Amino acid sequence: MYRSGAVMAWNVFKFCTALRGLGSIMILLVLGVVGVTYYALVLCNYGPALTSGGLDSLIAVLVLIIFHSLLGMLLWSYFSVVFTDPGGVPPNYRPLVDQERGEIDPLEASEFGPLTTPDPTNARIRYCRKCNQLKPPRCHHCSVCGRCVLKMDHHCVWVVNCVGALNYKYFLLFLFYTFLETMVVTLALLPHFLAFFSDEDIPGSPSTLATTFLAFVLNLAFALSVFGFLIMHISLVSANTTTIEAYEKKATPKWRYDLGRKRNFEQVFGTVQRYWFIPAYSDEDLRRMPALQGLEYPSKPDLDAQEF
């Protein structure tokens, strides 16, 4: 029985290794979908319509402006997720100590019960047996990355990276702009898609028509799937939790990090409104909001007091 369990664990880690190699392919797939969409919308349909004159030209200008604006924000957000480290545990990390009580700060305690720690007499300290190091609050080990990630939400194959404390906002913006972009493309190509089923002669070469058809189907599929993920993550942000925590805190009736929707939102997006819709933070927020750095998180005082 033990041997089969060991083989199963070995196979899981081999699968995690395969996911790392798959990630590069997924980036090419994303860029491929963007390329097909750009060719169908801009080069085949609305680009040529610019010279038509009248209402058609006006609509083409409007569609192209919206499309390129959203595409720029989508790519900016996407590559911000890809190239931003989600946050790792600093070398020689130690939990904060309450000087008055001489105990570990409640924010550094285990949120979900006792864990195996280097000191069996203090089960409040979170410890990773795989990394052999202490873990900050809300930190989890990623088997794909092979390390602990601050406020880990999940490992995303589409971005070849973990989604954690330092790039979660960028991931949400990527979902947001992807949904808007795919919806705009779907609506813009809808008349051309419906033309396939009409008795009218459709202008364009067979390859142009096939690309338009494919772009419409791909963008509609992405719009519907991303919408579901976007709704799920909106609910997570409103409760100040992550995908992993939402599953684990089922046994916890009261969530200490739920500070109200407004403050929960600010814990991810910051307080400066002009930065809310771009993948960046203001220097002011980075200085005065430790939660954006992934190591310290404010919590409800009444729930902290109940632990003592």
Rank of each mutant, 00 (worst) to 15 (best):
Y2T: 03
Y2V: 02
A6H: 08
F13I: 07
F15A: 14
C16A: 09
L19A: 00
L22V: 10
L28P: 07
L29K: 00
L31S: 06
G32L: 10
G35F: 14
G35Y: 13
Y39P: 00
A40D: 10
L41A: 07
Y46C: 09
G47R: 04
L50V: 07
T51E: 09
L55H: 07
I59N: 10
A60D: 12
L64K: 15
F67E: 08
L70Q: 15
L71A: 12
G72M: 15
M73A: 12
L75E: 03
F79S: 00
F79V: 10
V81R: 02
F83M: 01
G88K: 12
Y93S: 04
R101H: 02
G102N: 02
D105T: 08
L107S: 15
S110Y: 12
L115P: 00
D119E: 08
P120L: 02
T121G: 01
I125V: 13
R129M: 02
N132K: 11
R138A: 11
H140M: 03
H140G: 07
C148D: 13
K151V: 03
D153F: 04
D153M: 04
H154P: 14
H154M: 12
V159S: 08
C162N: 13
C162H: 08
G164N: 02
K169P: 04
F174R: 00
Y177K: 03
T182K: 01
M183I: 08
V185N: 05
V185T: 08
V185S: 00
V185R: 10
L187E: 04
L189P: 04
A210I: 11
F213S: 05
L214P: 01
L218R: 01
L218Y: 09
L220G: 13
A221L: 11
S225G: 03
G228F: 06
L230N: 03
H233V: 08
I234P: 03
S238H: 10
T242Q: 13
T242F: 12
T242K: 09
T242H: 09
E245C: 11
A246P: 05
D258G: 04
F269P: 15
T271K: 14
V272R: 04
R274Q: 14
Y275Q: 02
W276P: 15
W276H: 15
W276V: 05
F277D: 07
Y281I: 02
M289N: 11
P290R: 03
A291I: 14
L295N: 05
D304P: 02
E307F: 10
F308G: 12
